[in-house]
Amino acid sequence: MDKMKLSQEQLKELRYFIYKRGFREPEVMMEILDHFACKVEDKLSAKPGMSLEEAMKEAHNEFGYNGFYSIKASLDVFTRKRYKNVYWAQVKAVLKNIPVMLLLAALGYGIYTASVWAFVNKKTDWMFDENVVGISFWLIMLIAELYKLQRINKNLKKSYHIHIAKMAVVFAPYALWLFLPTRMTDSPKRILFSSLVIALIAVWYIIHYIASWKLLKTAQKDYEEFKSFHPNENPLA
């Protein structure tokens, strides 16, 4: 028995069938389409009189109670897991890199010393009246994040891979920013503690920044590989 092959017009029907069920990201659509198309082709080969509509319905029913959702859900979960692995592998790589760690330790010590100096000498910013070193680092982090966002251009922002990559590091140090201990104090213990926390957050943020770049590059590579097969943004095209 010769196996029947779907035409481009029929594949369009299949794409629309998947799209109608809420699977609209081109990456997710493509993950489902080949398996679905193989099933439909087998049905049409087995029963040549069968309509495409019937074959699609039967094939869809065979995907079980959740239909295509199980494929999308697992793609989301495990793409996120893969990206998390990339992120943590990069964090480990930085931690194992002795020259980089020595540089970071020196930087951390510099920030710590500068912060102690700012607390002792009451060097505050003009707006919030807080430790100028801490608040400066807060601003640097903000600018670095805005720069990262700006580098992810408009097309990439819509990418499934970039979206999942961003979700993978959503725990990133943003919460720590809010608790950056920059409020002025006279207590020597508090000065040392606050300066230590500022230095540690600064060092951690730099490690995070390096790892998140690597992660975004991986996601961008995945997206570009996908785009080389599917240059059109329209999932139905």
Partner: peptide, 26 residues
């Protein structure tokens, strides 16, 4: 698919994509 995706995330499997019969095949 959850099993395949998990194996890819755990670096047990790797994927390559090709265009076959007018659609992407992993």
């Amino acid at each position: 698919y959850p099993a395949l995706h998990k194996l890819v995330a755990d670096d047990i499997l790797t994927t390559t994509t090709e265009m076959v019969d007018g659609r992407m095949r992993k």
